[in-house]
């Protein structure tokens, strides 16, 4: 049951908008912090960057109660089945943000121990680059996802490709203070 089961006509148009609005404004992430990116994810939830103002009020410990899985950190060989299990326990509609370069592609650890991109294990909707991405970049990624949910674009793609398929959008890293701090160095 879900929006897809409702027959689409001009009467249900407003209902669909309402559901998309609700999904976007109350997207609760599941705790899947693994490594350094988890620290920046916690910073995004803290007071200064405050993801709660975007509706991501609480990190739900139980995947059954979560809509969004932010894979924050490097996924090792031992962790990959756990990742898949947590993803499977989430209820549709669910989204995945791959936070950081280790989750997106293996990052600087191109070796035997790290899964080279969590898209090998779960379908990813937004790739957030950075090592670690600062809270601003993560918020940019989250808001990109929110926009895709609000317009319904992502659900159309899902229906075309099958439930759970990832949108695979890559965003740019937007951190750093663009300040005129001049670094002085001693000359040789």
């Amino acid at each position: 049951m879900g929006l897809e089961a409702v027959p689409h006509n001009f009467l249900t148009g407003r209902l669909e908008d309402l559901v998309k609005w609700a999904r976007r404004n109350s997207m609760w992430p599941a705790t899947f912090g693994l490594a350094c990116c988890a620290i920046e994810m916690m910073a995004t939830g803290a007071a200064h960057y405050d993801q709660a103002r975007f509706g991501m009020e609480v990190f739900r410990a139980s995947p059954r109660q979560a809509d969004l899985m932010i894979v924050a950190g490097r996924v090792s060989q031992k962790m990959a089945p756990v990742l898949r299990q947590v993803y499977d326990q989430m209820v549709e509609p669910k989204w995945v943000i791959s936070m950081g370069v280790c989750a997106s592609s293996g990052g600087m650890f191109n070796n035997y121990a790290i899964v080279q991109g969590v898209d090998q294990v779960v379908p990813v909707d937004v790739y957030v680059p950075g090592c670690p991405p600062g809270p601003e970049t993560l918020l940019h990624g989250i808001l990109t996802l929110h926009e895709m949910v609000r317009t319904g674009e992502i659900m159309k793609r899902r229906r075309a490709q099958g439930a759970g398929a990832g949108a695979g959008v890559q965003i740019d890293q937007v951190d750093g203070i663009p300040s005129p701090v001049r670094l002085i160095g001693t000359q040789a």
Binding site: Q77, S105, G106, N110, N111, Y112, A113, Q116
Partner: peptide, 17 residues
């Protein structure tokens, strides 16, 4: 797991990027 990763003859298993 098969093998002992820090041995020198155990490959780092780097994938081409």
């Amino acid at each position: 797991w098969d093998g002992h990763p820090l041995r020198k003859d155990d490959p780092i298993a780097r994938i081409p990027v």
